[in-house]
Design a binder for these strands. Structure first.
Lengths: 201, 201
DNA sequence: CGCTCGCCGTTAGTGGTTCTCACCTAGCGC
DNA sequence: GCGCTAGGTGAGAACCACTAACGGCGAGCG
């Protein structure tokens, strides 16, 4: 099934090359620079040829987002199961891949397809990693515990609260950092991040 | 200077009408729906007429961002000078104006102009409001205190730390909330926000 | 081994975008 | 009352995503 014919393998490789070129263009020039035509030109083919491999710009973006989710999830999973390391891995991935991080959590450039079931599943999988890796935090207040229990299924509400809190704070810090909001003010993000992680313990 | 002639007043009003139409289109359809042509059509003029009032799409967006900064700043300034109220005002503005909040902190749709000096000044002004309104938090560790002192000028490092921490956490929560990340998981954001604000005290 | 059918890439074309240019008109200010 | 200028127009260039029609090549079957 993996190598089901020469044709299929060629097709898979071509899809990968398109995605690589797309990521390259995303890195330099931002999301609005991601152009089907430009990718085709970079690959030496011309224009509509890419529609053999992707239904359109939207499917390509969705695919990039799914890949980014998987990549971020595995990067965090590879860290030791201690909060400082998890947080550090999250931040390191975001700094190393700011454009992909924006793709995941930034403006809904796709937007409308934000509720594609595959995307929801990928996001759920990512947060599940936090559930599996994070220890319990403070015991939530009763109304919050109620909501958390309904949401997280069998997971301990204290763990769920810790995971969601960590995600929210990490996302806040990291998204401000990758937009340069700290550096543009001359503030070194490192010690501040350490303090935030300390507060998460 | 304010009413320097009929022509000038007409021009100012026209600019405002263009911005209003732009905000309307931004609200329904997202940033990629913001089209010079569509605005012109909505205003009953045709195409290039708008270039009499704005140098281009970019200047229009920059203007919208500056307005949004001013609006958010004044909304937060109007709240009582207690952290729960400040946080509540910040969140309420973001929920009431999600598209404008994304314009400020979401993807750098403008991007290249992210370092326009007027934008940096507006952002600095916004954070200054927090400085003025927020009380001191925990005393920062020495290296962090160093960085904060260098950054915030005469402001007490403990106040600066509190302000930046609050901003970072609020932004994390709010940006997740306006993208529907909580609701799409069936989690009521209200109690969780209250818990986060409590932790900020 | 040879044929066929399907996949691939092309060119041409549609309708959209931003933005520039040349021209015309109308009304403000002198 | 007249000139100048700001505002509006239409045409057009250079992009964009995407569709349609066509040709060629080769993989895989008989």
């Amino acid at each position: 099934m993996t190598a089901g014919g020469i044709r299929d393998r060629f097709r898979a490789q071509m899809r990968q090359e398109v995605k690589d070129a797309a990521l390259r263009q995303l890195a330099e020039g931002g999301p609005q620079a991601l152009s089907i035509n430009a990718i085709a030109k970079e690959l030496g083919v011309s224009g509509p040829a890419l529609y053999r491999y992707f239904a359109g710009r939207d499917e390509l973006l969705t695919e990039l987002i799914l890949d980014a989710y998987a990549d971020l999830t595995s990067a965090v999973s590879a860290a030791p199961r201690r909060m400082p390391d998890l947080a550090g891995a999250y931040r390191a991935w975001a700094i190393a891949n700011p454009h992909r991080y924006r793709l995941l959590f930034g403006a809904p450039l796709p937007g409308w397809n934000a509720h594609d079931e595959r995307l929801v599943a990928a996001a759920r999988e990512a947060i599940d990693v936090l559930f599996a890796f994070v220890g319990p935090g403070r015991e939530p207040e009763p109304p919050l515990a109620e909501a958390l229990r309904a949401w997280a299924g069998g997971v301990d509400p204290a763990v769920a609260l810790h995971a969601v809190t960590a995600w929210s704070r990490l996302h806040g810090f990291v998204s401000l950092e990758i937009e340069g909001n700290f550096l543009s003010m001359g503030l070194d993000p490192g010690p501040f991040f350490a303090a935030e992680v300390e507060a998460l313990k």
